[in-house]
């Protein structure tokens, strides 16, 4: 993370392959660790799946929003809810735990490239997001009469992968700012309102006008709109580019916050 650990000028092919090898091994072990940690894997996967079953499939049967069935419409919202949760908890809370335990310190004293650690956590969040999306699609198709093409599924998968990045940056910022003991609480305090106000749980059209005005300030809204765009169900008054721009801005903001927090930690180290 420090400048000295990034001798980019000297980045020969061998150091690149070395970095890649370490990244792959970190990712495999991070994924193994996350899946084995039942409290994490069951809640990260379980909540979006359960909410989708309840609010997307069982309730509101046969209802539509602008011609899109609720089951199809909410698939987008809960897929976003899932990947955002995986990124915030996997990176934010996971890294806060590694930091507080001194484990990250030990890794930083080793020759592990810090980028490999962060990328492994990010890819793990994407894998969780992909698992959640796949489960939601399976439920939607089998129980919710959702028509879904393979191309639409692949498009959503791509959005899950890209959409994990802004929230991974947010997780990084949280891990660097919030002490481990309060990390789960603070993360929930941001995650749940952000999900609700972004229209991930209940379609925005069904929410009060005030909420509809707040939503465009939230990254969850922009990712959900991009996801809805896969079905042609996004808000027609907004462009896709505006949503990408919103996510990019949020990513840069969070990265900047994380960077400042990191520098402050370094100065106190």
């Amino acid at each position: 993370m420090s400048t000295a650990t990034l001798p980019l000028a000297a980045a020969t092919e061998s150091s690149l392959t070395r970095g890649l090898r370490i990244f792959l091994s970190e990712t495999r072990l991070e994924l193994t660790r996350s899946l084995r940690t039942r409290t994490f894997s069951l809640s990260a996967i379980g909540f979006p799946v359960m909410f989708y079953l309840l609010f997307g499939i069982m309730m509101n049967r046969h209802e539509t929003i602008d011609g899109t069935s609720i089951a199809r419409y909410m698939l987008a919202g809960y897929a976003v809810f899932g990947v955002v949760g995986s990124a915030l908890f996997g990176i934010g809370v996971g890294m806060a735990a590694d930091l507080s335990a001194g484990w990250l310190e030990l890794k930083r004293a080793s020759p592990m490239p810090p980028a490999a650690y962060l990328a492994a956590k990010c890819v793990t969040a994407i894998c969780f997001g992909a698992i959640i999306l796949t489960l939601l699609c399976t439920l939607g198709v089998t129980l919710g009469h959702v028509q879904l093409t393979l191309a639409e599924y692949a498009h959503m998968l791509g959005l899950v992968a890209a959409g994990a990045i802004p929230f991974a940056c947010m997780g990084l910022a949280l891990a660097l700012i919030v002490p481990f003991n309060s990390a789960p609480g603070v993360t929930n305090l941001l995650y749940l309102p952000m999900s609700f106000l972004g229209g991930l749980w209940i379609p925005l059209q069904a929410l009060p006008k005030a909420v509809q005005h707040i939503a465009p300030l939230l990254p969850t809204y922009h990712l959900a709109q991009l996801m809805l765009g896969v079905f042609g169900a996004a808000d027609p008054t907004k462009t896709q580019a505006s949503h990408w721009l919103g996510l990019l801005g949020f990513t840069l903001l969070m990265f900047g916050v994380a960077w400042i927090a990191f520098r402050r930690r370094e100065q106190n180290a």
């Binding site: 072990l29 660790r33 735990a97 507080s100 335990a101 001194g102 484990w103 310190e105 030990l106």
Partner: peptide, 9 residues
Amino acid sequence: LQVGRAPEM
């Protein structure tokens, strides 16, 4: 180093 908790799983 003194490590409080390494990844337990």
